[in-house]
Amino acid sequence: MIVTGLLCGALLGFVMQRGRFCLTGGFRDMYIAKDNRMFYALLIAVAVQSVGVYTLIELGIVQFDAGGFSWMATIIGSFIFGIGIVLAGGCATGTWYRAGEGLLGSWIALFGYMFMSAVMRTGILGPVDQSMKSVQTSSNSIAETTGISVWVFIAIFIAIVLWVVIKELKKPKIAIPTMKPKRTGLSHLLFEKRWHPFFTAVLVGVIALLAWPLSEATGRMFGLGITAPSANILQFLVTGDNQFINWGVFLVLGIFLGSFIAAKASREFRFRMPDVKTGISSFLGGNLMGFGASLAGGCSIGNGLVMTAMMTWQGWISLLFIILGTWTASYFVFIRPQVKKKTVVSDTTITA
């Protein structure tokens, strides 16, 4: 359990750090910069995992039960989570891997995330969490609800992903000035060369697929997951109860380790202290992340990558509201201040 969890997490942390696989930035850029590349990269990772996991299910290697769909908790929680990741400066996985780079603001966000996740799971907000999740439909599976084979949905999804990827790759390339490589061979490819987001996405999808049999071999019947394991770490440190230690805990610790290794080897690791305003924002964002992800039953990885791949209502509706939450927060954090600044400058010029 320790070895496979750490290994899978380290691979994920290494790949995400080197590929700058940041879903917070990706969702934000869709709105602010009209840049959809990271969102398309997420779709690639979902497609890779979906085909792989359902193949393993057909072969009887892994099991999956979509369960019921707590629609109200998913919608509200996902929207709040989307707001939180903007304030925190990274999603759940992004916070773990950026903490491994030495970003102390991510450490602050991570503590808030772990704290509120634990409060929602076994603390005073547990009844609120359970009450909202009790409002649900009987089926979470899109295939089961519609009576159409899941492979039909997977085939349609893959066709859409291939179309958007080919369309994106055909766009004229923008020449980006690059410095002369300081390394050669494998070292250059691993630690210096900029990774394409689509290449990174394929690797993330493969690692997400690998997580299923490795996790289920320990009795944890799921793939990648960040929120519950993060809460488990804090709960274990407080109570000392070994029941909180499972494969997922070593997964998230592995993400931190893998990112640290990648950052050190690529000379990107350094401790960076946030200012007071950023630190407060990070802590608030982390708490919103923990509250929202716990309520929604998953974060941008658990819902946005894994449950989407399993073709569930929870996954796709959660992804939609995470994006909407990210856009809402981006407007108030990035766009509105600039609009006010321009208005003030304009009014000052007219008055003068």
Score class of each variant (00 low, 15 high):
V62T: 06
S215T: 07
S294E: 01
I317K: 08
F283G: 09
I261C: 10
K342C: 14
G225Q: 02
E192R: 05
T343V: 12
L295K: 00
K173C: 04
G298V: 03
F21K: 04
L59A: 14
G89Q: 02
F256I: 11
L186G: 02
T351I: 13
C91H: 06
M273A: 14
M289V: 01
I32N: 07
G94P: 08
W212Y: 01
F244W: 12
T184Y: 13
Y40Q: 13
I44V: 07
T184I: 13
I233T: 09
R270T: 12
Q130N: 14
W327C: 09
S106E: 04
F27N: 06
R270L: 10
L23Q: 15
G219L: 02
G248I: 07
K170R: 11
P274H: 11
D347K: 12
G60T: 03
G147V: 03
V333D: 11
W212A: 00
F332S: 14
F260Y: 14
Y31V: 13
W71M: 06
G325I: 04
T93F: 06
C91K: 03
G77E: 00
Q243R: 15
S266Q: 05
W71S: 01
S117I: 02
A109E: 11
L209G: 02
F111G: 04
M310P: 02
L288C: 04
G25M: 02
Q130P: 08
G223H: 05
S138A: 15
S318W: 03
D35A: 01
S134Q: 07
C299N: 05
P274W: 12
A73Q: 00
L59W: 14
G223P: 07
Y97N: 06
K193N: 13
W313G: 00
F269S: 08
T351R: 14
A118H: 11
T326K: 04
A41I: 09
A263P: 03
N232G: 07
F283A: 11
D35I: 01
E168K: 13
K133A: 00
T200D: 04
I350A: 14
V128F: 05
V238F: 11
I124K: 05
P127H: 00
T326R: 03
